[in-house]
């Protein structure tokens, strides 16, 4: 399959990329790892006239411990996120989600920023960002701004990024002590996309659940939080019974997609089942049970 013709630009700095975005506006599209965009271009579902490749922009690939937060450059590949000792030990949910994306070759090219900016409903990372209360840093011609994950995913394939902005960094606030997290998904076997993906983050205080955050990917048009489950679990005894009860509300307020891969009813069912499993794992980790 041959994509439509386009003009190729390979800026070496964010400033140059912003200049090109300003010049070509709506006719331009940013290319990161290309593993969402190029398949769409091959199907001609996307046909940008100008492709601005961020592959040669220096300084957008890093994972740094900055004290209060871990900063991840937008062009960091899923492979690098999955392999990062820092993330594996401190933010397991993100490392596990990155490791579950596509396959080895896809993870070697695909990037965290590209995936988030594309906001595919079947992508793994949006729900993880919500559960982590991550912040997304965007640079535009007039400066830099930080967008809370909760405000970032606005609609199907749509984000709060302005057409003339570049997502440059993802910031993960440090999780409190006695916190465990995990990512669990039911994947489409061919594509690896999430039919249901659950990001669970649980903090315990003694024998009580102090906080629980659950991000849901793959189910609705955008990722969302299972706030009913979160509320039902906060303040409850930190055990499997409480998790089981709370997980019953995991699909509340989500309008599930139905397609050839899974009906809306089946997706709702899977959300509850996977929320329970993921929360139990996260809870076990929070209690130091691996």
């Amino acid at each position: 399959m041959i994509p439509s013709a386009f003009e190729y630009h390979s800026p070496t700095s964010v400033e140059d990329a912003l200049g090109l975005l300003g010049r070509f506006g709506d006719d331009a599209k940013l290319l990161a790892g290309g593993h969402s965009l190029i398949p769409l271009m091959k199907l001609r579902l996307a046909a940008p006239e100008h492709l601005i490749d961020l592959g040669r922009v220096q300084g957008l690939s890093y994972i740094r411990d900055e004290g209060g937060a871990i900063a991840i450059g937008a062009m960091t590949t899923h492979s690098a996120v999955a392999a990062s000792e820092l993330l594996r030990s401190r933010v397991a949910v993100l490392a596990e989600a990155a490791a579950s994306i596509g396959d080895v070759q896809v993870r070697n090219r695909g990037t965290i920023g590209g995936s988030l900016a594309h906001a595919d409903p079947g992508a793994d990372l949006p729900g993880v960002m919500l559960a982590l209360n991550a912040e997304l840093v965007a640079r535009g011609a007039s400066g830099t701004r930080t967008i809370a994950a909760a405000d970032f995913f606005t609609d199907l394939l749509s984000t709060a990024l302005e057409p003339n902005e570049v997502l440059t960094e993802i910031r993960i606030p440090v999780l409190p002590a006695n916190t465990g997290s995990t990512y669990l998904k039911f994947a489409n076997q061919a594509s690896g996309y999430a039919i249901v993906g659950i990001a669970a983050v649980v903090t315990v205080s003694g024998a009580t659940v102090a906080d629980a955050r659950v991000g849901v990917s793959g189910v609705g048009e955008t990722a969302s939080r299972a706030s009913g489950t979160e509320q039902a679990l906060r303040g409850q005894p930190a055990n499997a019974d409480a998790v089981k009860r709370a997980a019953q509300q995991a699909a509340d307020g989500i309008e599930p997609l139905g397609d050839i891969h899974a009906s809306a009813e089946y997706r709702s069912h899977l959300v509850r089942v996977f929320a329970e499993r993921a929360l139990n794992t996260a809870l076990g980790r929070a209690q130091g049970r691996g």
Partner: peptide, 15 residues
Amino acid sequence: IASVGQRLLGITARK
């Protein structure tokens, strides 16, 4: 496009 694109095509059309 029917086999691979449909996942997104369907929801985009509905949107």
